[in-house]
Design a protein around this nucleic acid. Structure first.
Lengths: 224, 224
DNA sequence: ATTCGTTGATAGTAATACTATCATTTATAG
DNA sequence: CTATAAATGATAGTATTACTATCAACGAAT
């Protein structure tokens, strides 16, 4: 039996949390705690109590809570890239692939049995509410140099490449890709918390509405 | 001589910072400090030292630093709305108005002599790097109920209304407006810190490029 | 049987985000 | 011009956070 696991760059942790039981517990419960408390109220102390361990032990895996957040978000995007690969490699043309990607990004996230240690639903909540905080810091440039955002950038590249295939004359492929990625999560947040900023919450199926919104946004924008 | 000032809702502060000298100093120097240190490293203690005052005195104006940030961002959007009003009321049709708004939102911000107490350039930096943090908290719903995001929502409404005038059949006017507003700032941040997520940084005039990107995004998307 | 690596237990520190109290200065009204 | 109130300053104190350091205990591998 072959076990698939998402392998992440070694700058994303101090000590690989996938290599030990404690590491897995840290990841598992941090997803739970951050999604419940929000990133600001989340502390290593609270996490250590949840898993009957100590702050010091957690610090052996992650330098600080920001790094842990970056790790979780990186895991999410690596997971998305894996799913995209799996569901688009057989498709014939760029349009179809892009369409499938938009669907994957906007669809409601359900538990993925392939990774029993991760609560993908809770992780998606974190991505929606906290992922911008990974780069909205004074350390962005250093963190970027250390490759912490590689996964997100590679997904953006992937989408931009499809956009350029569909319309080679479109100048802003990466800008549109990053805008669409950000928007797809932001709109879900708005629908829940600032509903006057979006129509999603008024429609019967907000996830499907989001899909149509983002799809329309991309395909209309790139049409020559 | 009539002095114009941006009047903000009274939930945005404890005591109106525009009503006293100390209040004005708090706003003036907090813009400077937050833009330099970033919001996380910014503290009331550091601010109090800058203005030769005390933490306790600052707390009389703002409950906490998050509230101060919300105030600054609200001021910014109120200022934008004022500029938009001023520069679009004479324009004949929705297309022209929307175009002008996009230009105003994406253009490089320079000091506005009308408000000598505010460094609009530094404030714009804050909007770009920190504004998402105003609502990405566990308190969003409460803060929203207290009207803290009124200015942003009203600008979004304004843009959405123009979109609906241009194409009454477009379903996602507010979603597109909020997406464009967010993107216009996000792309500037990416250009500076995560340049592989956007083309803006490669082009001669990134501000003009941003204008064209956002304009194209909106007008292409809403075309029937 | 030893030792190595992992974890736990405990302690400690500087900084943060406040709150409270009271004295002092400044403005304002009588 | 004085009385009084409002605004500010000075000072102190607290709980929590975000770490760092040290050492003991335990189990697994050699």
């Amino acid at each position: 039996m072959s076990v698939i696991s998402i392998q992440l760059g070694n700058n994303l942790y101090c000590k690989d949390p996938q290599s030990t039981e404690l590491g897995k517990k840290i990841v598992l419960h941090s997803i739970k705690l951050i999604s419940e408390l929000g990133f600001e109220a989340f502390t290593f102390r609270k996490l250590s109590m949840q898993i009957d361990s100590t702050e010091a032990s957690i610090y052996r895996y992650f330098d600080n809570k920001h790094r842990l957040l970056v790790y979780l978000i990186a895991w999410y995007w690596a997971w998305m890239e894996y799913k995209i690969e799996y569901e688009t490699h057989h498709l014939g043309n760029a349009q179809e692939k892009l369409d499938r990607i938009i669907r994957l990004i906007t669809e409601k996230k359900v538990p993925d049995d392939t990774f029993p240690d991760i609560d993908e639903e809770a992780l998606n909540k974190i991505v929606i509410a906290e992922s911008d905080k990974t780069y909205l810091t004074k350390r962005v440039d250093k963190d970027n140099q250390n490759g912490l955002f590689k996964g997100y950038k590679s997904l953006c590249d992937h989408i931009a490449a499809l956009i350029s295939t569909i319309n080679p004359n479109f100048t802003f492929a990466h800008a549109l890709a990053s805008t669409a990625l950000e928007a797809s999560n932001q709109q879900v947040f708005f629908a829940e918390h600032l509903p006057s900023l979006t129509e999603l919450s008024q429609l019967e199926d907000p996830y499907s509405a989001n899909y149509h919104f983002v799809k329309n946004l991309i395909f209309k924008t790139i049409d020559a």
